[in-house]
Write a protein that binds this DNA or RNA. Structure first.
Lengths: 189, 189
DNA sequence: GTCTATAAGCAGATAGAC
DNA sequence: GTCTATCTGCTTATAGAC
């Protein structure tokens, strides 16, 4: 019997890379097929609901990778703000080099789908919530009370997503680095 | 002689509304044509470079509207931070009501085009710069020195864009309101 | 300047052989 | 489970009548 798990995973891996950079509407099924080297029939066997189902799995995968990256980085530091500044600097470097999105944000697909597909919007919402929770836990463990940690986590999530957007648009990581510096100054931790 | 200016402006108005919410890749030319009530030949007469040229004009128009809104709001306040908080609360209300983008951000089209079209990327970059300059001027006029005003302007731009993204994804303006509160606390102005 | 007809290609999706 | 052929409809764009 053929190994269907590998074929399915290959589709998701390929799709998630393309969706993250080119977006949901900007990526055709044919492109995903070509890149993954499989025929169309196989895709629809593994994803009966077609493109939307493939995107759903892609968003979940992207979320897992983003969360894993963020956790790994924050764990290097005791002070949460130092970890966050390091994280923004890491992303800044990637943008300086690749000038492409890669395991940093699902903002594009979130903006493309929040008004069209409740399934995909909810999936994106969950990823953003998970990111916020990582920040919250780090801040809470450091000693902030529940309310303060929650407020700061929302703030840091928004700031980071915005800085990624601006840095991508400008094709350099300067905004991310400036924002990192600024949050260090403002929070004064 | 026919009034070509009106026809052209009508196209831009229609396109900008659709692009802002549905995105560049998510909006077909046929949809713009149908909504504006004009035939295809007319569009290509006014925009020989097709969709990209239409999008370029749409981004410029969106930028003008966003800037005008922001200026008008900030001018109501002497204290820049109070103006910014009011502005984020305004956007939060719009999201609570409409749950759609409308004169608040070009983030979707920026993320869709930064890697495909240098023309559109540059247009988006200019809009973000203009927004940043509005914040800078307000902060500078209030008494911040040049460097500090610049740093805060970048920070506020990023934070606002990120908060809009998260609020749209969650379909409510809570993040924007929380971020507004938080920036008031952190800057302590 | 305006409008219609149409081209050429790609989109997502499906049927059915193997 | 895999693969091919194909369908329908939409995409951007163009040619040419008026």
């Amino acid at each position: 019997m053929g190994n269907n798990t590998n074929a399915k995973e290959k589709f998701i891996e390929t799709a998630y890379k393309l969706f993250e950079v080119k977006g949901y509407n900007g990526t055709g099924l044919n492109e995903i097929l070509k890149e993954s080297g499989a025929p169309k029939g196989s895709l629809y066997y593994h994803f009966p609901n077609g493109k939307e189902q493939l995107a759903l799995e892609s968003i979940k995968l992207a979320g897992e990778k983003i969360i894993a990256n963020l956790k790994r980085t924050l764990d290097k530091f005791d002070n949460p703000i130092d970890g966050i500044v390091y994280s923004t600097n890491e992303i800044a470097e990637i943008i300086d080099k690749n000038k492409k999105m890669h395991d940093m944000s699902i903002s594009l697909i979130a903006l493309e789908t929040y008004d069209n597909s409740e399934v995909l919007r909810t999936a994106c919402e969950k990823v953003f919530e998970a990111i916020e929770n990582i920040y919250f836990q780090k801040l809470f463990d450091y000693g902030f009370n529940d309310d303060k940690a929650k407020e700061l986590a929302v703030f840091i999530s928004a700031m980071t997503e915005g800085a990624i957007l601006l840095s991508l648009t400008r094709k350099n990581g300067e905004v991310l680095r400036q924002v990192g510096k600024q949050i260090k100054i403002l929070t004064n931790i």
